[in-house]
């Protein structure tokens, strides 16, 4: 277990040591979140490493990562807690008590509580990193329910009372910006916008994950990826895909990306039929190599 980070630089170095190269503001906001105990709301396009940031933080701080994947229709029973009614039933049958008050007191105890992600994050004896992924997929009602958890780090259970956090979890909420989140939620969070990294930054990331790649090939790769992102695509390539592509190129033993190599391997970064056509036409043609090899 690591102590709290003491400076922004420490966080930046720590994240890098576990394989995540933070951008300028990322390390700063992560540091502030750890110091102030505020949740971070991370927004940005898909595939810029929002979820990865949470994983890296948990690795770096040596905390357990608890993940709550949001989806439409997610409710309290799936996110907070549920009563284990089967067990309650068994308990009633086993004890055969006739006194209702005593029974009631018995069966609504912690023993019969099924912990769901939020609950386990709060109740955990060790500090954790809580990732609430794709919060924009849930309904507004769910957001409202989160408010208590996020600002007070406590959960009220009518039968049991309040469960308060024993340690300060680091909370990350990610959103793909498919809908506007409520003001109330935003107010409780630090805001971090992650965008596709700049060329040099992405090159550094690629090199961190596949160190064998040569400078020229790496640069060429990130330049092409950024060119592809500039097109009007359904799904622009993510950072993870640039890394995959770099690995694939290394496996194939390519030392430069010409049109042929590009056309052969671009399915790693472009995953839509219509996108493929656009990319072949706009990017493939710009690269050197035999003409007419494309579509």
């Amino acid at each position: 277990m690591l102590a709290e980070p003491a400076s922004v630089q420490e966080v930046a170095d720590g994240l890098q040591s576990v394989g995540y190269l933070p951008g300028e503001s990322t390390a700063l906001v992560a540091y502030l979140a750890a110091r102030l105990g505020k949740p971070i709301l991370v927004e940005g396009p898909a595939g810029v490493g929002k979820t990865e940031l949470a994983k890296a933080l948990s690795r770096y701080l040596d905390r357990t990562l608890i993940r709550l994947q949001c989806y439409e229709g997610l409710d309290e029973a799936k996110a907070l807690y549920e009563w284990n009614y089967r067990k309650q039933l068994l308990a009633i049958q086993a004890t055969e008590k006739t006194d209702w008050d005593a029974t009631k007191g018995d069966i609504f105890g912690e023993e019969f509580l099924l912990e769901r992600p939020l609950m386990s994050a709060i109740a955990s004896p060790d500090p954790v990193v809580l990732l609430i992924d794709e919060i924009d997929k849930t309904d507004q009602e769910f957001e409202a329910m989160l408010l208590e958890v996020l600002s007070e780090f406590q959960i009220s259970i009518p039968e049991l009372g309040r469960v308060e956090a024993r340690t300060q979890p680091i909370v990350l909420l990610t959103s793909n910006n498919t809908r506007e989140l409520t003001e109330a939620l935003k107010r409780r969070c630090l805001y971090l916008w992650l965008d596709y990294p700049e060329l040099d930054h992405e090159l550094a990331i690629v090199k961190l994950h596949s160190p064998e790649i040569s400078d020229t090939l790496g640069r060429r790769l990130v330049e092409i990826v950024s060119m592809v992102r500039g097109l009007d695509l359904k799904k622009p390539p993510s950072i993870a895909e640039s890394i995959d592509w770099a690995r694939a190129l290394l496996l194939l033993g390519a030392d430069d990306i010409d049109q042929q190599t590009f056309n052969d391997t671009m399915s790693i970064i472009v995953k839509h039929r219509t996108d493929l056509d656009i990319v072949v036409e706009r990017v493939g043609a710009k690269l050197g190599g035999p003409l007419g090899a494309g579509a």
Binding site: S25, L28, L32, E180, E183, L190, Y191
Partner: peptide
């Protein structure tokens, strides 16, 4: 947040304020 960071670095100062004041 300003009590947590050093004010020497203008970039940090700005980012820290932005993270708390600008939420979109």
């Amino acid at each position: 947040v300003l009590s947590e960071i050093s004010w020497e670095d203008p970039a940090d100062f700005r980012e820290a304020l932005a993270a708390t004041l600008a939420k979109s």
